[in-house]
């Protein structure tokens, strides 16, 4: 029996939120964020998912981006939370916790019956 990996589908929904949360710690550039997410256990985040998410939030005004000269290589784009981004993070964090709670509740009911 084949089991499909659901994580990519789940990640699509929460990547934005996770990025905002990581940036609450301080500014960072793309690859750095990908590495930190990997350390947290998300596996390798494809660039094809990471940068569109960052750009989306930048366009929404939740992130502020700044170019810095890189050390030896091409420049790096550093992202930082804006006040609007901080507000969005707080709101989405609450919404996620509520949502995750519902998921847990659904999973727990079937488990408890056994």
């Amino acid at each position: 029996m084949k089991t499909t990996d659901q994580r990519p589908a789940w990640l699509r929904g929460v990547l934005d939120l996770c990025l905002l949360a990581l940036l609450d710690d301080g500014e960072a550039y793309g690859y750095e964020l990908a590495r930190r997410l990997e350390e947290l256990g998300f596996g390798t985040i494809p660039g094809g998912s990471l940068y569109p998410a960052l750009l989306r939030r930048e366009k929404l005004g939740h992130l502020h981006a700044e170019w810095r000269a890189g050390d030896g290589g091409p420049g790096r784009k550093y992202y930082a939370l804006t006040p609007a981004g901080r507000t969005a993070l707080a709101q989405e964090r609450i919404a996620w916790r509520a949502f995750a709670g519902s998921v847990e509740a659904a999973l727990a009911t079937t488990e408890a019956r056994r």
Binding site: Y29, Y31, A34, P46, G47, P74, K77
Partner: peptide, 19 residues
């Protein structure tokens, strides 16, 4: 440039990383 920078540090295959 951002993609170039990422590929440089990740040393990954562009098709695998970005599609």
């Amino acid at each position: 440039v951002e993609a170039e920078s990422h590929l440089g540090e990740a040393a990954a295959d562009p098709l695998a990383s970005f599609g």
